[in-house]
Nucleic acid binder design. Structure first.
Lengths: 186, 186, 186, 186
DNA sequence: TATGAATGAGCCTTCATTCAT
DNA sequence: CATGAATGAAGGCTCATTCAT
């Protein structure tokens, strides 16, 4: 009465699966948002659900793995000597235009790991802010929290905007924030 | 085929139930967002699921009933002769601090009824914008779409911010938008 | 806090409601079959659901009231001196082409009242059969049960055939049964 | 968000469940017709509803699995060199006496998969008809559509006949159709 | 007596999570 | 260590039936 199994390729492709899961999750999160069914991730990665759970015991673990790259990209940006806050806005907007789920998570999850990503992002913002203020591009009264809030608002908005309208909204929002942050009297 | 019953207190409280449903929905939406389970609304209203569906055949019908009040409050605000865009921001922030779901719906639903609420809100924004620009309080370059975008960002952000931090975020955001919209050279 | 009611026209239109319910049920059964929601009947009759239940405590009671007319039409047919079994087939087919639910009920319900209608229908069949056999139009070996079975099959089939194809199926089926019942060697 | 669990005996009986579901569905369809609640199938198979949906994503998928055997049996019958239309009627009757739902589905579903079964059944009928006509057992005027109609009527009727009376009805119906299809003058 | 709101059982469907192989 | 089937808890929705007014 029992069964028939497929094949068990053994532990050969151990971390290959992990990578496949991350890639699949990136796509799935981008298409269907942070709350997309995890089974869809496993399916797209051609991996058993069990393996998904072994590598990433919960949704956040998976999301953190996915979004670490995004944050790293921002950090890299901050290290360029000529990057500005405007670049940061643009980068974030770019990321969110492509995938909505990072901000979904950063804003809504109280989980340690999500907050860690948020912290790294804040550091990026603070670094760029200081540099811009030094060079008189941004008003001295602006605080890092303002920048993070602006980023949060930008991203949160874009994350709920239909894909087709995201670009336009991003442009308009960027103009608003630039106006808000530019120094007053020349 | 028949069904067993427990008690049936009858339709004595006909529209009282309707009111209870709206009140419950306001709370549930505030706590859990626009996608909160409707069964939770029925439960909190102490009402059968069937009654909920009789009164409000779908989620949007319920939401519209809940949020009509909010929009009406904004319209009333716009009619006061001395109200300003800042007042509008504050009102929206106030509302969103209390309940998150109105903007959830306005941003994400393409439904006629949701768009009707959005339209009314836009009208309020446009009226106040015109008045503020006449009196030199807001730069002439600002367009209604900018105002709506700002409101959307504000609300979208607050809607994902944990309740405890909403007030602070709202204050900071208001300052940002004021800075962005104020006229430049005096 | 309580209520507002509509109007209560009193017991003025007592049996008018009953008639409206029967008419509405005839339409609803025709459109949606024997298992159509009773609430749809009440709605179409512009009558409260309670009234429906007062007049017809269950689905069968309502159906019997509706279909009594159909059976009566068949009985009237049988009383015409020149009517034949073929006429009966045609009449049943006609009725079923229009509304499917009578046979649904006769075949599937074991309820007394449904069987009463079946009995009357059988009497009609027997009368016509006897007459046809007297005149040599139908083989002497055919029994009333054969006729009822043929009617049942015809009707049961039509009741499940998409409306557009019913006419064609009815014609073909009639030919089959005629071939089956005609006397053999002339 | 998580879920509580009782026991999980694992997927040891993987395809055993599938078989149990088919068996259960055969019984449930036989007892309650094609529209019987799928939850009843899961319950009778002692299987979670989720498993039912995994194996058979919709009602038709389940029905096709159940009825494929039936059609296969008919096809096998047609391949026997000495089988006749009468055998086909008897086989169909036999099957329908046991389970009602096959014809329910073939008649009422416009779904691809249901029509595929219908097509196979028609092929069987046409093959047997040709052979019977060759050997003079069936009138040359009879067309495959007549046979299918007869089968449809037979099955449709039986499908609505209480189990106890099915055998008798089947016998009588077979006699009728034989009479209808036999060649006329010897 | 008529009304129509309220009830709640039950069906369908989706998913997170577990676990035998 | 990977697999993928099994589980069952929700949630959405529909309807038959009751009952205060």
């Amino acid at each position: 009465m029992p069964t028939k199994r497929k094949v068990n390729l053994g532990p050969s492709a151990g971390p290959a699966n992990r990578a496949a899961l991350i890639a699949a999750a990136r796509e799935v999160f981008a298409e269907s948002g942070f709350m997309a069914p995890l089974s869809a991730v496993a399916r797209r990665a051609q991996v058993g659900q069990g393996s998904l759970y072994r590598h990433f015991p919960d949704r956040i673990a998976l999301a953190v793995a996915v979004f670490d790259d995004n944050i790293t990209a921002l950090e890299t940006l901050a290290e360029l000597s000529d990057s500005t806050l405007v670049d940061l806005f643009d980068s974030v907007a770019q990321q969110v235009i492509a995938s909505t789920a990072l901000i979904d998570m950063i804003i809504s999850e109280r989980d340690q790991r999500a907050e860690h990503l948020a912290t790294r992002m804040t550091a990026v913002a603070a670094a760029l802010l200081a540099r811009d203020q030094d060079q008189g591009r941004i008003a001295a009264t602006v605080e890092p929290a303002d920048v993070m809030l602006a980023i949060g608002m930008l991203a949160s908005l874009l994350s709920r905007t239909p894909v087709a309208e995201r670009m336009e909204s991003a442009t308009r929002a960027r103009a608003i924030f630039r106006a808000a942050f530019v120094p007053r009297a020349p």
